[in-house]
Structures are given as structure tokens and as C-alpha cells.
């Protein structure tokens, strides 16, 4: 477990050494800020629905951008060999990198606390959905990060890792919007697969075990597959 923390620390600091962290955070804040505040004064309602509604789509490309280098860069430069010949297990490496990316996503969300705070100054804000929304955002972030990590472990090219990760995350986000193409009997199943569906439930302030299980299982599957890819590589 100590090794996980060392790897986490190294990867998390690594984000802030390279410009990637600053670029991703600025783009994230710019997009969410723009979409939130342009609609905010039109609706004239003191809530954060507009912010949370867009979050799954924004995370679909932010999370893979955060994770794309985690394995691809190591495979490309060959430092993967150095990493794996130190006394660490595959599990330590996967968990360390995963937690670093989740911590980064969480750090990225911190500046957005400005939205509920300003909103609460302007009107009566219901804090329930806000707390639910942030819990949901971290869970959503964790599942997308695990998908992005898997994509990164598949290739030594960061751009390909980003595109694969983004494609999977977008599919998970949009799958429940495509339901009208499908036969009636499949609806329930495909709706359950949709990340957006579960996220919107949580962001209403209702923390339901079905939604929790969904996010945790996506995360688990992503991490487990990453582990398998690493084992299969040599």
C-alpha cells in the first residue's frame, strides 16, 4: 500500500510539472464557466443544474486527456521497464496511477466551488443537489479515469490513447440518448449502461445504491482490464 502512495504522489506532482495540468484545468473552467453563466441569468433560478447537466460530456474528453499519458508515455520512453523492475506489483502501479488521476479530477473541481458560492449569495440555493452533484462528479470522474487508464495502457501513442478513451466515455455518456433506435425490451438494459443517466440521478441529490454500484463497477472493470493488459504485455 505504501508503494501505491509513492506512485500516486509522483504521478500527481507530475501533472503540475508539465503544462498539461494547467491547460486541462483552464479549458475545463472556461467551458463549464461559459455554459453555466450564459444560461444562468436566462433561467433566473438559483441552482447548478446547468453545470451538472454538462459535466458528463465535458468529463468525456477531460478525463481521457488527464489519463492519456499515464501509461502511453512510459511505454513510449521505455521508463515502463524501470518502473516494473522496481519492487512494485501491477496492482500498485494501476492503483497509484488511477488515484493520482482521480485526485487531479477532484482538484480540478475545487475552483468550481465558486459557482455554488456565488449562486447562494444571489438566491436561495438548495445544497442537497449540490453535494450530490459533487459526489456524483467524483464517481463519474473515477469511472472515466479508469476507462482512460485502460485506453492508455493499450498503446504507446498518447493521441490514440486519448481518442480511444474519449470514444468509450462519449459512448457511455450518450448511450441513453440513443434509446429510440432500440427495441422496447432492450431499453432498460441500455439505459442502465448510460453514465449520464446515473449521474443525473445522483445530481438531483438522491444517492441511490444502483447508481453507486454502476460507477463502482465501471471503475472496477476499467482497472481490472488495465491490470490484465499489463500482465499480458510481457
Amino acid at each position: 500500500m505504501r508503494q501505491v502512495i509513492h506512485i500516486l504522489k509522483k504521478e500527481f506532482n507530475g501533472y503540475f510539472i508539465s503544462p498539461i495540468a494547467y491547460i486541462v484545468i483552464s479549458i475545463f473552467l472556461l467551458i463549464t464557466g461559459w455554459f453555466f453563466f450564459t444560461a444562468f441569468f436566462i433561467y433566473n433560478q438559483a441552482d447548478l443544474r446547468n453545470f451538472f447537466v454538462l459535466l458528463p460530456i465535458i468529463f468525456s474528453f477531460v478525463a481521457p486527456a488527464v489519463t492519456m499519458r499515464l501509461f502511453s508515455e512510459e511505454l513510449n520512453t521505455g521508463s515502463y521497464e524501470i518502473l516494473l523492475t522496481m519492487p512494485v506489483t501491477f496492482r500498485d502501479v494501476v492503483l497509484g496511477k488511477f488515484l493520482a488521476a482521480v485526485a487531479f479530477i477532484a482538484a480540478m473541481l475545487v475552483p468550481t466551488f465558486a459557482y455554488p458560492i456565488t449562486t447562494s449569495l444571489l438566491g436561495q440555493l438548495d445544497w442537497g443537489p449540490v453535494v450530490g452533484g459533487y459526489v456524483g462528479a467524483v464517481l463519474l470522474g473515477a469511472s472515466f479515469v479508469s476507462v482512460g487508464l485502460l485506453a492508455s495502457s493499450l498503446t504507446r501513442n498518447q493521441i490514440i490513447a486519448f481518442i480511444i478513451g474519449m470514444a468509450i466515455c462519449f459512448s457511455l455518456t450518450l448511450i441513453d440518448k440513443m434509446l429510440f433506435f432500440l427495441p422496447q425490451s432492450w431499453l432498460g438494459f441500455f439505459e442502465y449502461l448510460g453514465a449520464d443517466f446515473h449521474f443525473q440521478n445522483i445530481s438531483k441529490g438522491i444517492i441511490d445504491s444502483r447508481d453507486l454500484i454502476y460507477f463502482l463497477s465501471v471503475t472496477f472493470v476499467g482497472l481490472y482490464c488495465t491490470h490484465m493488459v499489463m500482465e499480458g504485455r510481457n
Binding site: 507530475g14 508539465s18 520512453t77 521505455g78 523492475t85
Partner: peptide, 14 residues
């Protein structure tokens, strides 16, 4: 063990 791979592939940003 201590191991030095060929061309010492290290983390360039660190």
C-alpha cells in the same frame, strides 16, 4: 536487484 536498462529511459520532466 538493481537494474539499468539500455539508454537509461527515465522520466524526462522530473
Amino acid at each position: 536487484l538493481g537494474y539499468l536498462p539500455e539508454d537509461a529511459p527515465l522520466y524526462h520532466d522530473m
